[in-house]
Amino acid sequence: MNQTTLKAILEQAEHWAEEDRQDLADYARVIEARRTGTYRVSETEREALTRSLKEADRGEFATDTMISAAAKRFDR
């Protein structure tokens, strides 16, 4: 892919739905992490991590029953 093609895709992406633009940004972060060895979390991921840490600090963990139920849903 040449530079012109990449620029054209990015220009088209400006008109995409927010969710699709976010997906593109997420893919780009993964590619950059693979190239540099450093992954930079998105704001959405940062918020989820912060929420999870606060839940853990409060001792809010999934019960064994909850984990077993989830495992059964995904077992094939």
Score class of each variant (00 low, 15 high):
residue 30 V to F: 12
residue 76 R to K: 13
residue 16 W to V: 12
residue 39 Y to H: 00
residue 35 R to F: 09
residue 27 Y to N: 08
residue 44 T to P: 01
residue 42 S to F: 00
residue 74 F to P: 03
residue 31 I to C: 07
residue 56 A to V: 01
residue 61 F to T: 05
residue 17 A to Y: 15
residue 41 V to C: 01
residue 10 L to N: 14
residue 35 R to Q: 12
residue 63 T to E: 04
residue 66 M to V: 02
residue 37 G to I: 09
residue 13 A to N: 14
residue 1 M to G: 11
residue 4 T to D: 15
residue 59 G to C: 04
residue 28 A to E: 08
residue 23 D to T: 08
residue 23 D to A: 12
residue 53 L to G: 02
residue 61 F to L: 09
residue 64 D to T: 05
residue 33 A to L: 04
residue 58 R to N: 07
residue 1 M to V: 13
residue 37 G to M: 10
residue 59 G to T: 10
residue 64 D to K: 05
residue 29 R to E: 01
residue 75 D to K: 08
residue 12 Q to P: 11
residue 14 E to L: 15
residue 48 A to F: 00
residue 61 F to I: 07
residue 18 E to T: 13
residue 29 R to L: 01
residue 58 R to E: 09
residue 44 T to K: 06
residue 54 K to F: 03
residue 15 H to S: 13
residue 45 E to F: 01
residue 65 T to W: 05
residue 44 T to E: 06
residue 39 Y to R: 01
residue 20 D to N: 13
residue 7 K to Y: 12
residue 37 G to R: 10
residue 2 N to V: 11
residue 36 T to M: 07
residue 9 I to C: 14
residue 67 I to H: 05
residue 31 I to V: 11
residue 11 E to W: 11
residue 57 D to Y: 04
residue 76 R to D: 07
residue 40 R to Q: 03
residue 17 A to G: 13
residue 37 G to N: 10
residue 53 L to V: 02
residue 61 F to N: 03
residue 55 E to L: 10
residue 51 R to K: 08
residue 68 S to C: 09
residue 11 E to Q: 15
residue 11 E to T: 15
residue 32 E to W: 02
residue 46 R to T: 00
residue 21 R to T: 12
residue 32 E to H: 03
residue 8 A to D: 14
residue 13 A to E: 12
residue 66 M to K: 06
residue 5 T to K: 15
residue 71 A to Y: 04
residue 4 T to V: 15
residue 22 Q to T: 13
residue 72 K to Q: 10
residue 21 R to I: 10
residue 43 E to I: 00
residue 32 E to F: 03
residue 39 Y to A: 01
residue 14 E to T: 14
residue 53 L to D: 00
residue 62 A to P: 11
residue 6 L to Y: 14
residue 60 E to R: 06
residue 45 E to K: 02
residue 34 R to P: 03
residue 19 E to I: 12
residue 44 T to V: 06
residue 45 E to T: 05
residue 24 L to F: 14
residue 8 A to W: 14
residue 62 A to R: 09
residue 53 L to S: 01
residue 50 T to S: 08
residue 56 A to I: 05
residue 36 T to L: 10
residue 28 A to L: 13
residue 49 L to H: 00
residue 57 D to F: 01
residue 47 E to W: 02
residue 56 A to Q: 04
residue 40 R to I: 00
residue 50 T to K: 04
residue 49 L to P: 01
residue 26 D to C: 08
residue 43 E to V: 01
residue 70 A to L: 08
residue 71 A to E: 03
residue 28 A to F: 07
residue 51 R to C: 04
residue 72 K to G: 06
residue 67 I to E: 05
residue 35 R to I: 10
residue 75 D to G: 07
residue 76 R to W: 05
residue 24 L to Y: 11
residue 59 G to Q: 06
residue 9 I to P: 09
residue 62 A to H: 07
residue 7 K to V: 13
residue 22 Q to P: 09
residue 69 A to S: 05
residue 24 L to P: 12
residue 10 L to M: 15
residue 21 R to K: 14
residue 68 S to R: 13
residue 45 E to I: 02
residue 35 R to E: 09
residue 36 T to N: 11
residue 74 F to M: 04
residue 73 R to W: 02
residue 19 E to P: 11
residue 60 E to H: 08
residue 39 Y to V: 02
residue 8 A to F: 12
residue 49 L to E: 03
residue 70 A to K: 12
residue 55 E to V: 00
residue 16 W to C: 12
residue 65 T to G: 03
residue 42 S to Q: 00
residue 19 E to K: 09
residue 18 E to R: 11
residue 34 R to D: 08
residue 3 Q to W: 15
residue 16 W to P: 13
residue 3 Q to G: 12
residue 19 E to W: 09
residue 31 I to S: 06
